[in-house]
């Protein structure tokens, strides 16, 4: 299952993040019921699935934003809810779906807040903070925008600013919830190129939720297809993106052809006659986003 480029040659890569018999809900019915998952070091994993399948919920649980109703999440073999949250923050960074910055906050200020877990109450900044901030800005090409207000940036720039913040946190694991939503295609590719670069150059382990199947296939070592809170398919993009799986997961009739550029699988939709509607289990329906 790890035949992607990210795990070059290692026989048994270390499992960084693990979910065991995970049961998740937002106070109501279970959104995820009895899910097992392991994330290997140095891989890029994308979770795909229809709206409301529980993929964002799963990501929130992996990032300890949501306490499980049952089962547990383990970070490097230790239960994440038993660890000091600040220690977790030094290892695991996360970026929720469409985050909101307070009006007038500059990019530099935003990125500086990524250093929070490394600061103590008596030492609010240090030269290593400045270096990390400068580097994070450079990595995303945002160094020319340090003084600009986040709310005045374009969508792509704003997303890069938030990713810079996550980078400044300097973590080995990064959870991204739909990092390319609302971006145009060029910016989508730009952000995913950045993700890939982080993975290859800094060996950051990445788990993200993506909607675009073709980009997910091209940029991920591993795809996890979810439906109704269960994993239906898990493996290399070529194994997961099959016509049969697409019908099962999305109710989508589609052809899968090789991507002419990257040779990864490419989905060409035909019709969506099998799509079922689940109005009650819409993934965007949890309280945190009503806020």
């Amino acid at each position: 299952m790890t035949d992607g480029t990210g795990v070059a040659g290692e026989a048994d890569p270390r499992q960084r993040l693990r979910a065991e018999q995970l049961r998740l809900s937002y106070g109501g019915p279970l959104v995820v019921d009895g899910l097992d998952l392991e994330v290997a070091e140095g891989t890029v994993t994308s979770v795909i699935g229809p709206n409301g399948c529980g993929k964002s919920t799963l990501l929130r649980a992996l990032g300890r934003l949501l306490a499980p109703k049952g089962g547990s999440v383990l970070l490097d073999g230790e239960r994440i809810d038993k660890m000091r949250t600040r220690e977790v923050a030094k290892v695991l960074g996360l970026l929720p779906q469409s985050p909101q910055a307070p009006e007038g906050l500059t990019v530099a200020d935003l990125v500086a807040r990524g250093r929070h877990p490394h600061q103590t109450w008596y030492r609010q900044w240090s030269s290593s903070d400045d270096a990390a901030i400068t580097e994070a800005l450079a990595q995303t090409g945002m160094d020319g925008y340090a003084e600009r207000a986040v709310d005045q940036l374009s969508g792509g720039q704003r997303q890069r600013a938030w990713i810079s913040m996550a980078l400044a946190q300097g973590t080995e694991l990064l959870l991204l919830d739909e990092p390319i939503t609302y971006l145009d295609l060029a910016h989508q590719v730009e952000v995913l190129d950045l993700v890939r670069r982080l993975n290859t150059e800094r060996r950051v382990t990445i788990v993200m939720v993506l909607h675009d199947l073709n980009l997910a296939a091209r940029y991920s070592d591993r795809l996890i297809a979810m439906r109704d809170g269960h994993i239906l398919a898990d493996g290399a993009p070529g194994e997961v993106l099959t016509e049969q799986h697409l019908a099962e997961v999305f109710g989508l009739q589609a052809m899968v052809v090789p991507d002419p550029v990257a040779a990864t699988p490419m989905v060409v939709p035909i019709s969506a006659t099998g799509v079922e509607h689940h109005p009650e289990s819409d993934s965007s329906n949890h309280p945190a986003e009503v806020a």
Partner: peptide
Amino acid sequence: MSVDTRAG
């Protein structure tokens, strides 16, 4: 937002 739509 979905709460609104459902109400509608």
